[in-house]
Design a protein around this nucleic acid. Structure first.
Lengths: 333, 333
DNA sequence: CTGTTAGCGCTTTCAA
DNA sequence: TTGAAAGCGCTAACAG
């Protein structure tokens, strides 16, 4: 059985309050301080966080509800958020939604029952409803990377539309006019799609239906299937914008299988500077999201929200994503 | 303020014990059951898990202490473990050790204070000492993917030595005799290195120092640096065994940069069937670890251990890893 | 600075 | 089946 504060009392003869005070960094006479420290060492005492939480109503635990933990992007986000929070004494309860909105709603519920102090979310759903259990319980939530249809929540994203627009602008500058896009109906997918359209419009290029490849969810499969289809068109695009990391992977697979050279026969531009785009040949030109900043800024806002409640308005941070040039885009025309 | 069991009492006029019993699935008169259910709905009551934990001494939370959460391999392990545990009512407290043994020891300590019911570990350290806080607190731990120098703990791995031996055997069958290996001093690295040596010995091939590339930690950088070095040797190897996923990535980068074709000019065989080996061209021949099985079997043993204590001896499960052929190994000679 | 006291929200005897 | 009462390990007034 683990030692409790009462064992320390028995050992030192001091009162509970004094010991508790010491534990929480209060002032205690040096003589007593030493006694307590000895007893703690002797009994190998460690405070019971559960008991502590029950009375303070703070668990010092943050829920991290993520659309898909297996994705490398999530892993990196998690790494940075976890480092930030750990150094500040917080633990992280991880809940994977596996791309299911139902699971996501359950995860929020789960976090609430676990009495987490706050929640960090990379959401699947775009509707705010799934967050209501947290709201009712007064538990703040910060959205990472993806917005939802509500401006009541703190949110840290990049300007997806603008980033995709700049990426498309770049393709056009390189002489491309037949540009395809592979996106999904998820938040990031639709935003990036809008940026693509805006760029085409600026350049006076009419979007063609056959070059627009929508899908439900970002996945390698989505990229693979649509790239294969694009290659069969009698008027092939000369460049493709993929709106997500996993989609890029699928596109590359298809290109490899069909023996289509990049960038000679097909130019490519993607999102997210993870390990693969740096390893592959040719190096992929891409929009690099500042992952560490997204995670840490989100965590910072969440802790502030936990401290200060709704004393400040919902924060909507939009970070800058830079275009990193690789070798996957060919200048033509 | 969230509703408590006392609010339910006020609403229904029943005793606390009865309500608690209902909450825990006990028998209650139908009339009372209805009253309680109504009150719960009306007050939007949800049990406070912290309070529950304090008295039951079970948090229904598992600690997941992982050497490096940013790695894709960890993400997949986490995904499966999390799915397994969540359906059984357990949450997961994630702690990233960032490849630091010091951080790892702190993480164990952290989990203990958080009163987790058990710990799943992908360890950095090979010494058992860092686990002693858990042992002292009577919290069971199961090692995933990597053993430590102690047979007192449950452990789920693959037979790394044998897997590497089979991989090397395959290279030899394909006619290779100049085979290099890039490994690390980590558990998996050294085990796989032993398998490499065993295979060479069987075939009567003398290992050459210049073909053996050790390093501290598995990383893309390790693969990159060593592949570059190998390419400069006046007697180049014809094949390379990489003992880890990240290392393979670095090797591929180096090959690409130097314009060395695979498998024409260099054959390659690696570990772990993650996304990259499937996307890259040529498809990488590799040893596929059964990641889902490792995670779920580990979680299963942990829950059993939590239920049954030390009533059964430490489990040491060694799973089979299959060799998946791709196109990265050339037949020669 | 110290100790007594009263809970935090829940489960769990034990008697009715 | 039900309910009163005790207590899980800790913190937070409050009085000394």
């Amino acid at each position: 059985m683990a030692a409790t504060i009462k064992d320390i009392r028995a050992e030192t003869g001091l009162g509970l309050a004094t010991i508790s005070k010491y534990l929480n960094g209060g002032n205690v006479r040096t003589e007593n301080r030493q006694k307590i420290e000895e007893a703690i060492k002797k009994l190998d005492y460690h405070p019971n966080e559960t008991a502590r939480s029950l009375v303070t109503k703070r668990t010092r635990t943050i829920g991290f509800v993520v659309n898909n933990i297996a994705s490398n992007f999530s892993g990196v986000l998690l790494q940075h958020a976890s480092a930030y929070l750990h150094t500040r004494g917080y633990g992280m309860m991880i809940c994977d939604s596996s791309l299911s909105e139902k699971q996501e709603a359950e995860n929020i519920r789960f976090c609430v029952e676990k009495q987490v102090d706050g929640i960090l979310i990379v959401s699947s759903s775009r509707e705010a409803a799934f967050l209501s259990p947290a709201e009712k319980a007064g538990i703040p939530a910060v959205l990472l990377d993806r917005e939802i249809k509500s401006d009541a929540f703190d949110c840290v994203t990049i300007d997806n539309r603008n980033a995709a627009e700049r990426a498309t602008d770049y393709l056009i500058e390189c002489g491309h006019r037949k540009i395809a896009v592979i996106c999904s109906e998820e938040y990031t997918g639709t935003e990036r799609y809008k940026g693509y359209l805006a760029s085409l419009e600026k350049a006076g290029i009419k979007p063609r239906d056959s070059y627009i490849c929508p899908g439900q969810i970002h996945s390698p499969e989505l990229g693979y299937r649509n790239m294969k289809r694009l290659l069969k068109l009698k008027e092939r695009p000369t460049a493709v914008l993929t709106t997500n990391y996993e989609v890029s992977l699928g596109v590359i697979m298809a290109l490899n299988e069909e023996g289509v050279g990049c960038p000679e026969d097909m130019s490519l531009i993607g999102f997210d500077e993870l390990i693969l785009p740096m390893v592959m040949k040719p190096k992929l030109t891409l929009v690099a999201q500042p992952m560490e900043e997204i995670a840490c800024e989100g965590a910072r806002i969440l802790l502030k929200r936990i401290e200060e409640g709704s004393s400040f308005p919902p924060q909507r941070v939009s970070l800058y994503a830079s275009l990193k040039s690789g070798e996957s885009v060919k200048r033509i025309g």
